[in-house]
Design a protein around this nucleic acid. Structure first.
Lengths: 188, 188
DNA sequence: GTCTATATTCGGATAGAC
DNA sequence: GTCTATCCGAATATAGAC
């Protein structure tokens, strides 16, 4: 892995763990085993490096989720699989967590990929919900966009509850709770 | 309002807006119109002040929600009212947002009130769900604790989606989505 | 109780040698 | 490309006068 790649990977890890305001150039350099000069040779500064790191995380996440939601199975099965996707619950969502960082929200270049990723996710999930309705698996009374937002919010909020409790339990409960509601709304 | 009170109130606002790592003693002093000496006279440092601020926010939130959930109306009506409670959506939850702050999570004295508040909220809401099941308003197939976690997670996650999109829309969608699911799960 | 002065370390970067 | 030196202001206090 090149020095540039190591800088990006270290930044990804630190942004996930400490956020943008909580991450210093010095910490990034140390984690990457690179000197100051090296970092400022490859990137104009902390912001450009963070953008590269966020982009990489966003692309990875998007590709993984899309593969899962586009895979085989009924709509409800794919939503269930997505909700049960393996996650490092106590670390939170590496993209969603950035919405709490004041500098990220105030910097268009950093905010953009976060916005795009979560908007894409809601839209993609709404498609799957619509497929489920069309197939008669889900109630035609459901609004695909609203239901999709609820599912994504359950995950994002599940992370918050799990981190507060220092336990994955509330996350798992929230997921099972929303799945039970989805299943119980099926046409009978 | 005393200087001490102004320090606490300013800290509350800054913690909400910028988090703990993003808030400096200097910024607090400036917002409170107090000098350094003043702050260090009333509090041992940033941590003790933050604890006082978080405690105050947590108590306020808890009292307000409890009043609403203990009020008149059926269980489903009270849950609906709680979900429709007026909120500054784009600012996020002043308690839930702290779970994303690495220093808060690493400091037991700061983490404790956050944990307590969200745990209390899940338990309180689970009671209301149980009342709804007992009254025949909600499906007896629902698990009160899981359903309560889903409802709280929908709110916390709704804030995340709204902040990412810089619009309250995804929050409102998530709330309406979960309410539709709750209603559609009612025994028929 | 509040103020000003001082101290130490970190944050975020630039300059220029190798 | 990478390194070391250097810069300036901010973060987080402590000390002691008023």
């Amino acid at each position: 892995m090149s020095t540039k790649d190591r800088l990006i990977e270290s930044t990804r890890a630190l942004l996930w763990e400490r956020g943008y305001v909580g991450t210093s150039p010095k910490a990034i350099q140390h984690a990457a085993g690179a000197g100051q000069g090296s970092m400022y040779h490859h990137f104009s500064g902390k912001e450009e490096l963070a953008r590269a790191a966020i982009d990489r995380t966003a692309e990875e996440m998007r590709a993984g989720i899309d593969a899962q939601l586009s895979g085989p199975g009924t709509a409800l099965e794919r939503i269930t699989a997505y909700l049960h996707r393996e996650r490092e619950v106590l670390r939170g969502c590496p993209i969603g967590g950035l919405t709490q960082d004041p500098e990220v929200m105030a910097t268009p270049a950093l905010r953009e990929p976060v916005d795009q990723t979560l908007s894409w996710l809601r839209a993609r999930l709404a498609q799957v919900v619509a497929e489920g309705i069309a197939a008669g698996e889900l109630s035609p009374a459901l609004d695909p966009a609203a239901t999709a937002s609820s599912v994504v919010a359950t995950l994002q909020g599940g992370y918050v509850l799990a981190r507060a409790a220092d336990s994955p339990q509330p996350f798992d409960q929230a997921v099972e709770g929303v799945l039970a509601l989805l299943r119980s709304s099926a046409p009978r």
